[in-house]
Design a protein around this nucleic acid. Structure first.
Lengths: 207, 207
DNA sequence: TTGCTAAACGGAACATCGTTCCGTATCGTC
DNA sequence: GACGATACGGAACGATGTTCCGTTTAGCAA
């Protein structure tokens, strides 16, 4: 066993989990989708500390299935987070196509506030030091800053809002406004976001 | 049951837990002391989320005893917090008597940084909305601001440090520096606190 | 179509945790 | 010294995260 002449350069252990034999089994894909959907709903309703069984029950799968696809709880949380970030970011083009720039911006900010409102308990999780969360903040920024930047630029170019708004500033502001604290309903958040939007409109043309 | 004529003005439920019949039994006092000491050590080592059994084992006490004195977990955490705030604040007079003002200030700030360093996970607990924590922030301020203010005034009066340092600002700054994040040891915090102290000295007499 | 095997599934079982319960031991008083 | 209120210990309970393993199924091949 001094040498391993077989499979030169092709290590036996699967370095790429892709192409294990056939791409991905249909039932596995269904399970993952069901889990992501169920987890998103449960997290929104009860926070990210919700019991695992509640998620598996809603998804109609066993606990073993969950842990097969998401070995750690944090993996599921991170996956749901990314999934929702994508959904929110991907909503922008449709809005931009259907509404005029300022309206599209306002609608997307509302959408974004709704996204944030489902993130109760996540900020604590983010600071837990779990490496599974390490890439989430940058993912958040990488996806949202270009999207919001585009909407802002379009509205500014149309002369509908002021031109000096910084996307990151606005993301942080809306996130702080919409993060649920205590028992206040999200009506308050929506009003504050609308106020922010009016602030942007008010400065149109100025400077 | 339309009226309750009995015990006018003296509600039956014990509003003051003091003076139940005789002051407090000696064994009960021992248990409380052992629990506070053990909890402080365990919290410092493992954070406030440490298992309850670990605390009772270290205190040499049964679980029932813990819950008799601290009906909720948050009660124990709050009690330990208050206990340590007191110990830290009470350390100031001795330091002020033994060392010259600026030295006493520096030593107390180190002491305070050590206090903060044991508070991993507490900030999350404070924001959990549990009413048992409601009074902790004001307790923190009420005890520390006069203590630090006294030390600052003495050092400023002696011309050893600048005179425009705000106690609350300094508390927040040191707390932020000393709060353990990730795996860094507290050496870093002590260096930063020393730096802050040098900053105070540097401004002596200025302005 | 039928057979086969790796992959995936479900849910019982295990370990751990916070909390409760209650029989027993102890303290302080009369 | 005896008695009653108080406190103690730790087993027991319910909930939860996680693992294990016998069973099922998807997808390929003959």
């Amino acid at each position: 066993m001094t040498d391993v002449p077989t499979n030169g350069g092709q290590p036996r252990q699967p370095r790429q989990p892709r192409q294990p034999r056939h791409a991905v089994r249909a039932d596995a894909q269904r399970s993952v989708d069901a889990l992501l959907t169920a987890a998103a709903e449960v997290f929104a309703a009860s926070g990210v500390d919700a019991p695992v069984r509640q998620i598996t029950a809603r998804a109609g799968v066993g606990a073993g299935t969950l842990y097969r696809h998401f070995p750690q709880r944090s993996d599921l949380i991170a996956a749901v987070f990314r999934h929702e970030v994508d959904a929110c970011a991907d909503a922008a083009p449709a809005l931009a196509a259907r509404y005029d720039p300022a309206d599209a911006l306002a609608r997307w900010l509302r959408r974004f506030a709704g996204f944030i409102a489902t993130k109760r308990g996540l900020s604590a999780a983010l600071h837990s030091g779990d490496p599974a969360y390490g890439s989430l903040p940058s993912y958040f920024q990488d996806r949202f800053i270009p999207v919001l930047g585009g909407l802002l630029d379009a509205a500014a170019a149309a002369g509908q809002i002021r031109g000096d708004a910084d996307p990151m500033d606005l993301l942080r502001a809306v996130a702080n406004l919409a993060l649920p604290v205590g028992d206040e309903n999200d009506e308050h958040a929506q009003r504050m976001v609308a106020l922010l939007m009016d602030g942007l409109r008010y400065g149109a043309g100025a400077e």
